[in-house]
């Protein structure tokens, strides 16, 4: 177990290691539009973030906030019906948009990998899991089947599957939900990607299994220096594993900060509302908090700040123009006209 990885981590990271803190994934001004009933609807609007080696960035939001579309864009996995209007996605110094389809396939699974909420839909039920992992290794490393299978057993062992050599010959349905998610993680790390995107990786799992999988992700990050982008709606998961957090609302990023700044020095009223809404296992409460109103759909965005119609602190200016994402000297960014004057502690 825990054998050192053979060879270099990846060329991408090596290229970036000149400046040790250079980010491995940079998303800069990303805009994504889908064709809607009334023309193009912007579902992701001007989203920017960067992730460094060994860092976990959590992208938080409710359904419809654009968090999953953002992560799919990073993987170059958006459907053809989507229109990638603006912005750059730079993976280890290379603009993903400049890559041909073939080159993109080389990168995907090798330098950037993704795991999803429901592992059963990502695994082929007709093939043994060891062979599915070996196929990824062969595609990217060009090794023999024998070597690729050995690597599959090795990564299954790393993610904590007991009797990995035997289990590599099992089919996906023979694993429990938590074990299947481990298989997905094993497949994702088989080529030692610089970046792992995990979209709600534990949402479908029971709490005790969730704890196991989060521990595993933490270990992978520490041992292989992987950058982790964790897409989730669960602020408990965020508090547990994230270093930095980006909060998304109605397609735009409303706040980005270190995990402590976000929870203890909240700068955006929506983040405050989200924090107050979380039911907490160690606090008995009568009435859970509800943010009034609903998230606007991309076809009916308010003219000013997207959160203004639901915001308790809104002033006239908030209805007139969209505030810019302003970053403080401590690196805490918020898209709110009043973030300097408001004292937002989760209520």
């Amino acid at each position: 177990m825990n054998r050192p990885v053979n060879g270099t981590i990846t060329g991408v990271v090596d290229g970036a290691s000149a400046g040790a803190a250079a980010p491995v994934l940079v998303v800069d001004g990303l805009c994504v539009e889908f064709a809607g009933k009334a023309g193009w609807e912007r579902v992701v609007d001007d989203v920017s973030f960067a992730v460094r080696r060994g860092e976990t960035l959590a992208i938080v939001g409710e359904s419809g906030s654009g968090k999953s579309v953002t992560s799919l864009a990073c993987m170059g996995l958006l459907p053809a019906s989507a229109c990638h209007r603006a912005g750059r996605i730079v993976l280890g110094g290379t603009d993903v948009a400049s890559l041909s389809r073939r080159q993109l396939e080389d990168v995907r699974g090798d330098e950037i990998a993704m795991i999803f909420q429901e592992p059963m839909t990502s695994l082929d039920p007709a093939f043994r899991v060891g062979d599915q992992i070996a196929e990824v290794v062969r595609r990217h490393r060009g090794t023999s089947w024998r070597q690729a299978r050995a690597r599959a057993v090795e990564v299954l062992d790393i993610v904590g599957i007991p009797r990995a050599a035997d289990r590599a010959r099992s089919y996906p349905h023979e694993f429990s939900g938590g074990m299947r998610q481990r298989v997905m993680i094993a497949m994702a790390i088989s080529c030692e990607p610089a970046v792992l995107i995990a979209d709600e990786p534990t949402t479908a799992l029971d709490v005790t299994i969730q704890a196991q999988v989060l521990d595993l992700l933490r270990r992978m990050k520490a041992e292989f220096g992987m950058a982790l982008v964790l897409v989730t709606h669960d602020l408990g998961v965020v508090a547990d594993v994230a270093d930095r957090v980006a909060v998304m609302y109605a397609g735009s990023m409303v706040e980005e900060a270190s995990v402590d700044d976000l929870f203890y020095r909240t700068a955006h009223p929506y983040t405050q509302g989200l924090l107050s809404s979380m039911p907490q296992v160690h606090v008995a409460g009568e009435q859970p908090y509800v943010i009034p109103g609903r998230m606007p759909s991309p076809s009916a965005l308010p003219p000013g700040c997207r959160f203004a119609p639901r915001c308790a602190y809104a002033i006239d200016a908030c209805d007139e123009g969209l505030p810019a994402l302003r970053r403080s000297s401590t690196g805490h960014a918020a898209r709110c006209f009043r973030s300097d004057e408001l004292e937002l502690y989760p209520t």
Partner: peptide
């Protein structure tokens, strides 16, 4: 195992 939304 239940996660609490409080990093500290």
């Amino acid at each position: 195992a239940a996660l609490v939304p409080d990093p500290a």
